[in-house]
Simulated assay, not measured.
Amino acid sequence: MSGTLYGIGLGPGDPELMTLKAHRLIASAKVVAYPAPDTGESFARSIAAGTIPHTAREIPIVVPMRVDRFPAQEIYDKASDEIAAVLATGEDVVTLCEGDPFFYGSFMYLFDRLSDRFAIEIVPGVTSLTACAAQLQRPLTSRNDVLTVIPGPLPDTEIEQKIAEAQAVAIMKVGRHLSRLRALLGRMGLLERAGYVERASLAEQKVHRLIDLEAETAPYFSMILIYKGDEAWTLPPSFSS
């Protein structure tokens, strides 16, 4: 019998936002894998650090933190081989994923390589979308509104078209594109409707109306949420963070 590979969604960062199932599986894990940068600590591991057994074998999947790091095929090939070797012995492997494994999650690359050979169970996690909406204190979408999720690195023309066709918009991976995105939303007359959240649920979280934000760049874990549907939802006039 082969072991089972678990893709565990950890949520946006606050360990208390892990599900009970995620906590149970991590706490009983004998082998734990997780993505890690080539410098600094793994964000995924830091979320679950208080739950990982001290006896667990750890498999860091080191992904260079570069703009052009994906697709890092050889990295996931190597990680899949190492994880497969463990699964083949009958041992389960718990893989940690910040957010949700199948929502822009790197676990999808392991799933693609291993799902035809081993049993895999996905444990969904609280996504950054809902975490950011909670911190902005404005509903994400409603009724028949179309919610569109847009990667920030896309060209302005594509982003503008997608925003025009939606009633609710989430722009992810803002990072170094913040100034360009803010200028675009200004031209579209949407700054008053746009909220900004970085590092949602963490101690260093920041929440602003986009029009009030003075920064020129943002961290990778940042998001812009816009609502332009029929509901009379507005952002609070100010935020404490």
Rank of each mutant, 00 (worst) to 15 (best):
D92R: 11
A168S: 12
Q73C: 13
P219L: 08
I211L: 15
L114C: 08
E82Q: 12
P37A: 15
G125N: 03
D145Y: 10
P236Y: 11
A27F: 00
Y34M: 07
A203Q: 09
K206I: 15
D81H: 08
Y109M: 10
T51D: 00
I122T: 15
L17N: 05
Q167I: 06
I52M: 03
V62N: 10
S179L: 08
E16K: 03
W233I: 07
I26D: 01
Q167W: 08
A79Y: 11
G99C: 13
I47F: 01
R69K: 02
D14C: 10
G9I: 03
I122L: 15
T55S: 07
G3P: 08
E158W: 11
A164E: 01
C132V: 14
S238V: 12
E16V: 01
G195L: 08
L213W: 04
P236T: 14
G9E: 04
L184H: 06
A170M: 03
P237G: 14
D92T: 03
H208A: 09
T55F: 02
V31N: 09
R143A: 13
A183P: 00
S42F: 05
L110G: 09
A22D: 02
G90F: 11
F111W: 14
T51N: 02
E231D: 04
A134C: 11
Y76A: 00
A29P: 10
P219Y: 05
D230W: 12
V94T: 12
L140K: 04
M223Q: 09
I159D: 03
P71R: 14
G175L: 03
M223E: 05
P237C: 13
P15S: 04
V67I: 12
Q137E: 01
F221R: 04
T157V: 12
S201T: 05
I8H: 02
F43V: 11
Y227I: 09
S240I: 15
P151M: 13
A79W: 09
A36N: 14
H23Q: 14
F118C: 10
G3S: 06
G105W: 00
F118P: 13
S106V: 08
L154I: 06
F43N: 06
A85E: 10
V32Q: 05
V197P: 09
Q137L: 02
M18E: 12
E74D: 05
P53Y: 01
L235T: 06
F103D: 07
F103P: 06
G186M: 04
L10E: 01
S241W: 05
D92Q: 08
G195W: 09
A133R: 01
Y227E: 02
K30N: 11
E74L: 07
L147D: 04
V93K: 10
D112Q: 14
P124K: 12
D116M: 14
L213N: 06
V149L: 04
V174S: 00
L96E: 01
